[in-house]
Amino acid sequence: MFAVVKTGGKQYKVAKNDIVVVEKLAGDAGATVELDQVLMLGDGGKATVGAPTVAGALVTAEVVEQTRGPKITIFKKKRRKHYQRTAGHRQDLTVLRVTDILTDGAKPAKKAAAPKKAEAKTAEKAEAPAKAEAPKKAAPKAEAPKKAAAAKAPAKKAAAPKKTTAAKKAADKTKE
């Protein structure tokens, strides 16, 4: 059995246990996603085509990893105009493993969630310190003595006596 699904503006033909690289979908590794835009279903010799989607069809997939595509270099240039720009781009991608193709409104079977060993250990570690240690309080800081602001007014310069025309002439003669 196969299905044609639409995600990220593109169409993918998938079958059970296929690995598909699609544009980024929300979810960490190990999470389950549902692709509900099924455009076509095929089973052996018969095919069901949706208008635009097949009613009640659903594809479930498991997120294998979140990754990025290859770097694409964008280069723009206008000749004889001293204009050129370079930019780069890497697309965010999600790698999916198709787990099931469901028809006629069937719901996906849920897995029995077994607690992981790492999660169990962190839960034990979180409980142990809470029992053993009493909460510590921070010691109050001693206040620094405040410095008295010096209220000194800046000293004003004494005004120089104005030179009279006679004093200017005498000063000019001494310079010569």
Rank of each mutant, 00 (worst) to 15 (best):
R68T: 07
P108G: 00
H89S: 02
Q84H: 08
R68C: 02
L96N: 06
G69K: 01
I101D: 15
G8M: 12
K76H: 15
L39D: 01
K121H: 07
K76A: 11
A148I: 00
R90I: 03
M40R: 05
E127C: 00
F75V: 11
A132K: 08
I19C: 04
E133C: 07
K131H: 01
K77P: 01
F2H: 09
P161E: 13
K168T: 02
R85Y: 10
E23I: 05
A158F: 05
K162V: 13
T32S: 14
E62I: 00
D36Q: 12
K46Y: 12
T99L: 05
D92Y: 03
L102W: 14
K168F: 15
K78C: 07
R80S: 13
A55M: 07
G45M: 04
T60Y: 00
A153F: 12
A57P: 07
K136T: 14
A31T: 10
E143L: 13
K107I: 09
A148C: 00
T53D: 02
A134R: 13
T53M: 03
Y83T: 08
G44C: 02
D36W: 06
K125Q: 10
A142M: 08
I74P: 08
L41C: 06
A166T: 02
V5C: 06
L96A: 09
H82N: 07
A126S: 07
A130W: 11
K117H: 02
A159C: 02
V54G: 08
K156G: 11
P52I: 13
K10E: 13
T53I: 02
A130H: 01
G56E: 07
P52E: 00
K77S: 05
K162Y: 10
F2R: 06
Q91W: 01
K137F: 09
L58I: 04
A159H: 11
A15G: 15
A31W: 01
V22M: 11
G50I: 01
A31D: 14
A130I: 11
T73P: 01
I101R: 09
E124L: 10
K46Q: 09
K175F: 11
T174E: 15
G45I: 01
G105P: 03
G27V: 09
P154T: 00
V64F: 06
K81E: 11
T60R: 04
A57D: 14
K137G: 07
K163S: 12
K16E: 12
P70D: 15
P108C: 02
A87P: 03
M1N: 04
G30R: 09
K175A: 08
A148R: 09
K146W: 02
A106L: 12
K163F: 14
Y12I: 02
A31F: 11
T86K: 15
